[in-house]
């Protein structure tokens, strides 16, 4: 029987590699009886979904900009190359 610590590691790994049949059944059984690890899994999946949304959205929206000095430095560097 897996405990919560072992289950959480396998749930995390299931996002990165296919679990073996034995691991899958062990995790499934633990999740069946443990509400906390079920929540943990849902939360990891939520974070993953939101990360995908973040990648497409926020880089375009954020208001951070290159500083003037950095912009000038890069422009000069480009000139020396042309």
């Amino acid at each position: 029987m897996l405990n919560c610590k072992q289950t959480s590691l396998l749930v995390s790994q299931s996002l990165d590699r296919p679990l073996t049949v034995r691991e899958r059944w062990a995790v499934r059984w633990h999740l069946f009886i443990c509400v906390y690890c079920r929540r943990f899994k849902q939360q990891l999946l939520l974070i993953q979904r939101q990360m995908t949304a973040w990648q497409t959205g926020s880089t375009a929206q954020s208001s951070v900009t290159l500083s003037e000095s950095a912009r000038k430095r890069i422009a000069e560097r480009l000139d020396t190359f042309n």
């Binding site: 880089t59 375009a60 954020s62 951070v64 900009t65 290159l66 950095a70 912009r71 890069i74």
Partner: peptide, 8 residues
């Protein structure tokens, strides 16, 4: 694209 690349 400078600002975009920088944010990224």
């Amino acid at each position: 694209h400078g600002d975009y690349l920088y944010r990224f």
